[in-house]
Design a protein around this nucleic acid. Structure first.
Lengths: 251, 251
DNA sequence: TATGTAAATCTTGCATACCAGACAGGAGAG
DNA sequence: CTCTCCTGTCTGGTATGCAAGATTTACATA
């Protein structure tokens, strides 16, 4: 919540800021989104914050626990699988439906792959999370279909939340290679193959998740205190207020 | 707006009622949705109506004209094409991704086709519009993927609005046959073929639209007065207040 | 020391009040 | 008779206020 009050907050900047924050992996799943705080930060009344939250809720990006607060979604394992399945359906359908790869499209894809490579070299994990999701938005943009782009953007946001929750180890290079093969198939004009590759890629990514074990609800606290799984320690630095120590309920 | 105040209006019944009204073709595109009227009808304050409208707006089912009012969406020709393209992508991807047709699924599809046949025999055009859209939701339900179901439900709602706007003549039997061939392909286990058929079917339906000529903005008034294209008459029954006579702006 | 209870403090939920823009209809001028 | 402008009335836009619920903390007690 620190650095998203940069813009001058026109109409629905609240909504966009939060989505942007999630897409860039700055906002973690389960983050509390206080109406009052957001209202203060964006210089509007709670009413408009509320409206933004409602809209985000219909996009399954945020959820409300009655009288408790708004929280960034924490997709369950079941939801995670559903989202990945949906993405496989849509992305493969998208690629298969393509009839040509324009020069501009090729250009953008290559530029993106270059960025990925760069981030891998730099080892910037947060940036990578963001880029790995962005790739699929780039694919959607190839179609030029605004409806599909919107849908995939939301699914990507949810995917990022899922990654942050369940991704034990981050096979960045593996994902990157997957993207490369998809682009390669597109360049040869073999869209059916690109579709198949995208399915395989998404399955691969999904398999990289640890959907069996529910995440430790206290893990963020533990990491804040910088201790691996147990034992106690004193200094807390990353916890600004006592409020963050709250146990979160998944219900 | 007459018969959607049946339910006892729990939390988001406003939203559901409107969507249901659209899915059943009772609510026409461009219908004005007054905050005050809805608030009265549902026995709540404008605040909650407003929230429902916001949610519907993010689903592209409703749109607001600043300081003028909320209206059921009237998709442009461009949007219409985009929506159909998106549906082709998603539905074909969905069918292609299937690995089996369960008995329960087969059962439901057949039941639906029977309903279609029945409605055709009865010549119930409104019911047909509803059923033609529902078929595709049934297909989505085969996947059991809640995310896809939601997406396709919204797209179907938009499709119905499009149909009401642009469908010059209603080739119900043609659509029905299309549905039958898709089901037949599914029954043989040839999901790739079903996918291709769904694309063809949707293209066929889209071609049945008249997307070139913008709909006459006065046509709803004319039909309300039950006169084909011109000349005047006196009694108006379906127009409760002068407000409804307003010319609507597409912007 | 551990535990149960109660009060305090936060949170959202909802309604209301007020503001400003847009349209319609009528009055007046040409 | 026609055109223009003005005003009344409706619309949504926004903020605020109050109420209800949940959680936490403090405190008393075993």
């Amino acid at each position: 919540m620190q650095d998203l009050h940069t813009a001058q907050t026109a109409q629905d900047d609240i909504e966009r800021s939060i989505v942007a924050g999630i897409l860039s992996a700055r906002i973690k799943p389960g983050t509390r989104l206080s109406e009052n705080q957001l209202a203060t930060v964006f210089g509007v009344s709670r009413t408009r914050v509320r409206e933004a939250m409602m809209r985000l809720e219909t996009r399954a990006i945020v959820h409300v626990s009655p009288r408790r607060g708004w929280f960034v979604a924490e997709p369950s394992a079941g939801e995670a699988m559903t989202v990945y399945a949906a993405r496989r359906v849509i992305e493969s359908g998208l690629l298969r439906s393509m009839s040509e790869l324009t020069d501009a499209g090729r250009e953008k894809l290559h530029a993106h792959l270059a960025e990925e490579k760069e981030a891998i070299a730099a080892g910037d994990k947060q940036r990578l999370t963001c880029l790995m999701g962005d790739f699929h938005i780039r694919l959607a943009e190839l179609s030029g279909n605004g409806v599909l782009i919107d849908i995939l953007r939301d699914l990507t946001a949810r995917t990022i939340l899922i990654s942050l929750l369940y991704q034990s180890d981050f096979h960045a290079m593996q994902s990157h290679l997957g993207h490369c093969t998809i682009v390669a198939a597109l360049e040869t004009g073999d869209f059916a193959r690109a579709a198949e590759l995208s399915i395989a890629h998404l399955e691969e990514v999904e398999e990289g998740l640890d959907l069996t074990s529910r995440r430790d609800p206290l893990s963020d606290l533990r990491t804040s205190l910088s201790l691996p799984p147990a034992a106690a320690q004193s200094t807390e630095a990353a916890v600004p207020s006592r409020r963050n120590n709250r146990k979160r309920r998944t219900a």
